[in-house]
Nucleic acid binder design. Sequence first.
DNA 1: TGCAACCGATTGCAAAATGCAATCAGTTAT
DNA 2: ATAACTGATTGCATTTTGCAATCGGTTGCA
Lengths: 173, 173
Amino acid sequence: MSMDRRSGCPINLSLEVFGDRWSLIILRDMIFGGRRHFRELLNGSMEGIASNILADRLKRLMELGMLTKADDPSHKQKAIYSLTEMAITLVPILAHLGAWGRVWLPVSDELSIRAELLEKGGQPMWDKFMDELRHEHLGMPLDTMSGPSVRATLQAAYETLVASKALAADSAA
Amino acid sequence: MSMDRRSGCPINLSLEVFGDRWSLIILRDMIFGGRRHFRELLNGSMEGIASNILADRLKRLMELGMLTKADDPSHKQKAIYSLTEMAITLVPILAHLGAWGRVWLPVSDELSIRAELLEKGGQPMWDKFMDELRHEHLGMPLDTMSGPSVRATLQAAYETLVASKALAADSAA
DNA sequence: TGCAACCGATTGCAAAATGCAATCAGTTAT
DNA sequence: ATAACTGATTGCATTTTGCAATCGGTTGCA
C-alpha cells in the first residue's frame, strides 16, 4: 500500500483512508450487518462487490489498522475479521452520513429506516452501539446490559418495514 | 455522469456522491478556505489537484446539486462557484471527519488546529458557521452578528500556530 | 472413500479513472 | 501592443477498477 500522503490535513487523511467506493461499504456491512467472514461480505453485499476488490480492501483496511484477522477455530480455512477501536469510532460518522443521505439523496424507505432510527437515537444510542461492538469484536465487557442490541433493534425495524411493504403490495395486486 | 445507483442505502448513496479522492477536498477548500474561483481552487489546493480533474469534479458537483455557478460581474470570464444548502449541511460531517482523523491519523499540528477548534465548538459553532455560509453563498441574512466569523477564527488560530512554529524553529537554529 | 459444496483468495483481461503537461481562446491590466 | 490571467480542454501514459473464471485446500455428507 502506498503510504505517501498528499497532506497532513485531517479531512484529507480521512479521505485517503475511506475515500473510495468500497471501504466504507465493507465497514458498514461489518458494523450494521454483523458480517465477519469473507463470504458473508462477498455474498451479503447489496452493492455486489467483486472478490478481488474485497480481498484488496480487507488487506488495505488491515494495514491501516481498521481491521484484524484471526483464525476461525471451527474451520481451518475460515478467517474472522474484527473491527478495531479505530473502526468502531466511525459509528457517529456513519450515523451522520446516513442522516445526510436520507435528506438529500434518493434513498429507499426500507434501507433508510436504520439511518432514521440511528439519527433519532443520537449519541446515547451510538455509545450503546459502540459498546456492543467493542464487546463483539474486542472481547470487552458490556457496560450495561439493557434490552435488545442496537443492531437487533435496527434490523427488526428494517424487517418490519419490508414485511408491511410486501403486505401493501399484495393487497394492491 | 453515471446515474446508476448501486443501492438505495443512505450510506452507499452518500459514498457515491463524495466517495472519491477529490470531491470533498474541493468542498473543504470552498467551505474552510472561502475559495470561489477555478484558479483559487486549482492553485490553493494543498494536495495539488490537476485542472482536468478539478473541471470534471466541479461539473459533477453541479450536476449533483452541491454547487452552482454564476458569472462574476467584475470579470467576463470569471465564474463564481457557490455552495448549495445540500453542501452547507456537510459541515457537521466534515467536523466529525476532522475529529476522527485527528485522533487516528498522522495529522500535522498546523493543519489540525482548525479541526480541533471546530470539534470543541460543537453544534453551536457548526450552526454559526452554516449560517455564515448561507449568507455568503445563498445571500441569506445573518441570524446573529456576533463577533468574528467562524472561518476567520479558524484561520487566525492556524496562522498563529504557524507563526509560533516558525519562531520555535528559528530559535532552535 | 468419493464427491460436491464451500473456504479465502488469485489471475487475466478489458474498461474506466487518474495524473501530468501542454495548450486553447477570450479578457484584463499595464 | 503585450503579457498575464480567465476557466477550461486535449492527448497520452499510468493506475485502478470491475468482471469472470479459477485456484488449492477444507468440510460435510452419502
